[in-house]
Design a protein around this nucleic acid. Structure first.
Lengths: 157, 157
DNA sequence: CCTGAAATTGCTACGGT
DNA sequence: ACCGTAGCAATTTCAGG
């Protein structure tokens, strides 16, 4: 019996052009890509379907401009967790905090490392004091505030 | 003379439904949203135009599944920079390193804080030793490796 | 992988409230 | 300022080869 291997096919040049177009602009028209590489729209369409099926590309998303929405402060917080406390418990609590947009279980000093998006520094301080530091098992936190984000991009396939 | 105020209008319930739909799936059809809120497609379309014009939403993008492409290691690196070295110089060097997908100028101990995406730990070590630590002015780095990303989301408007 | 036609969707103009 | 109808343009999908 032949097994289906997820994630296992080679991307050729056409696939890479498709990926590079779609990753920077999900609305790139299929016909435009088709003209660029010199095949029919249908061919491009079929390849995109294949890339979706193999889960190499995900649903296109529309990024919000957080600054325009009033979220101007990006911060990272390293969290020291009591050994006795279950990691998943704290994650469950963090899921309830809207300002947390990323969380990682990490090596090194910190147990958990999170990324926060807040309106301003006051908002950040409020979230830290009244939400994060009240989570059971958190013994200490270290905050890194981003003064300027100078690089933000995806990796090229 | 009347000044144009960027970013300054209130989002009503309909706008929020639009944003919530598009942010999670940029391909949500206008007509579907229209049915959901009970107005015409045109009305939704006009609102989307307005959201674009006011830069609240950006170009839709197609996220790549990095795991499927073989990138399985996420790491953060805190960088200590010599005072004598210009911040922008080091950023220019970092822009050349494909594996760096985010960089921040930060408060606290680190001068610069970056996010890296690598295929595996060997790849990470190679990038650290042979690319990052060779940048002029970097005196020390601290690496945080993500063993598991447990939260990854956007903020709800 | 292609052609050609059908269906769905998105876009624009113009008018109404 | 916001919404709708209607017609137009473009894109996506399907059939068959």
């Amino acid at each position: 019996m032949r097994e289906f291997k997820k994630y296992s096919f080679e991307l050729d040049g056409i696939d890479k052009i498709i990926l590079n177009s779609l990753m920077s602009n999900a609305k790139t028209s299929i016909s435009k890509i088709a003209k660029e590489v010199g095949v029919s729209s249908t061919a491009i369409h079929q390849r995109i379907k294949k890339l979706e099926a193999s889960e190499i590309i995900k649903n296109p998303v529309t990024p919000l401009n957080y600054k325009a929405l009033g979220y101007k402060t990006i911060a990272y917080v390293g969290i020291y967790l009591e050994k006795s406390v279950k990691y998943q418990e704290s994650i469950n609590e963090m899921l309830k905090i809207n300002e947390i947009i990323e969380a990682h279980f990490t090596t090194g000093n910190y147990t958990v490392f999170i990324k926060l998006l807040c309106k301003d520094n006051d908002h950040l301080m409020d979230v830290l004091r009244n939400k994060i530091q009240k989570i059971n098992g958190i013994v200490r936190t270290e905050t890194i505030i981003s003064l300027e984000q100078s690089i933000s991009r995806q990796i090229k396939p």
